[in-house]
């Protein structure tokens, strides 16, 4: 044994190395800031036998405000990017996610998944990204139309992104373990040229913030996707009432919450989309109609000579 390897050997046996653990922070405008409020909550592993613990940011209204500002500032240029480019970027997300599957399987297990389920969920998440990447230059053809009119006009309707989409988290049980439900809501929103602010479920923050790292590594311009952790109860009313948010996606079941959201959203005529009945692992949870839901139809009357 050489002296050097001896020394290494010694350090390994005598003193256990202190693990450097990751700080889970927010994802706003392509950066990872801590919450401005300084508040956090403790996350402990749901899986048996794990001692994993992490402090997770409890986002405040100001974090949400900052996220909306970031989403708004980049929305026009993201919508102006070609469909082909947006598709490529979504596909890149799938590539990087595939590359990091072990990390996500590990985190899904910490969030309560079985090994089998975690594998299945990561597979489905990657496939869903590829699915929406493929739709990027095709949904327009399906939903746009030349309309028959009885006048001297060439009349056609096309889809335009609604703008900034705020997404409240799926409930933990339907969402299974956190990754698929998130991707199934973010991907159809951004593929159509929207930007979004996503709040993750309190019980499933790890995969959300790690997915933010995937986003950051995938040519998605900063601000297109913003991810917050924290309390759904606390932020719901703000998501629904912010006047610079154009569309709200939520999965609330209770009539009371639905009523409250709709009332607040009416303030600026937000498009409200309720996906409470969605089963994210089923094929029905991927559809071009999910893209169409966060789009506005623009109809143009173009005069023609006869």
């Amino acid at each position: 044994m050489t002296p050097k390897s001896k020394a290494q050997d010694k350090s390994n046996t005598n003193k256990a190395r202190t693990r450097v653990s990751k700080t889970y922070k927010l994802f706003i405008a392509g950066k990872f800031p801590r919450t401005e409020s300084g508040r956090y909550y403790a996350f402990t592993a749901q899986s048996a036998g794990s001692s994993f613990k992490a402090n997770i940011c409890t986002s405040s209204r100001k974090d949400f405000r900052n996220a909306v500002v970031a989403a708004r500032s980049v929305q026009k240029s993201w919508a102006a990017a070609s469909a082909c480019l947006r598709g490529q970027i979504l596909y890149r997300l799938a590539e990087i996610l595939e590359d990091r599957r072990d990390q996500f399987i590990g985190e899904l297990i910490l969030q309560g998944a079985s090994i089998k389920h975690a594998n299945k969920e990561v597979d489905a998440s990657i496939d869903r990204l590829v699915y929406y990447a493929g739709w990027s230059d095709k949904y327009q053809q399906i939903f746009s139309n030349v309309n028959p009119v009885s006048s001297s006009h060439f009349n056609f309707s096309i889809l335009e992104p609604t703008g900034v989409v705020a997404i409240l988290p799926p409930a933990a049980e339907e969402n299974q373990c956190g990754l698929l439900g998130m991707i199934s809501n973010i991907a159809p929103a951004i593929v159509g040229g929207n930007t979004c602010v996503f709040l993750t479920n309190e019980k499933q923050p790890l995969t959300a913030i790690s997915f933010a790292e995937v986003i950051q590594a995938s040519d998605v311009p900063g601000g297109v996707v913003n991810i917050l952790t924290g309390s759904n109860v606390e932020l719901m009313a703000l998501f629904a009432s912010h006047k610079d948010v154009n569309s709200l996606v939520h999965m609330e079941k209770s009539l009371e919450d639905n009523k409250k959201i709709q009332e607040l959203a009416s303030e600026n005529l937000k498009r409200v989309i309720c996906r409470s009945e969605m089963r994210w692992h089923e094929n029905i949870a991927e559809s071009p109609y999910m893209i169409e839901e966060t789009q506005e139809v623009k109809t143009t009357w173009h005069p023609i000579g006869n």
């Binding site: 405000r65 909306v68 703000l238 009432s241 912010h242 006047k243 610079d244 303030e267 600026n268």
Partner: peptide
């Protein structure tokens, strides 16, 4: 008390 949009 509502966050505003430049649209208005």
């Amino acid at each position: 008390g509502l966050y505003q949009s430049p649209d208005y």
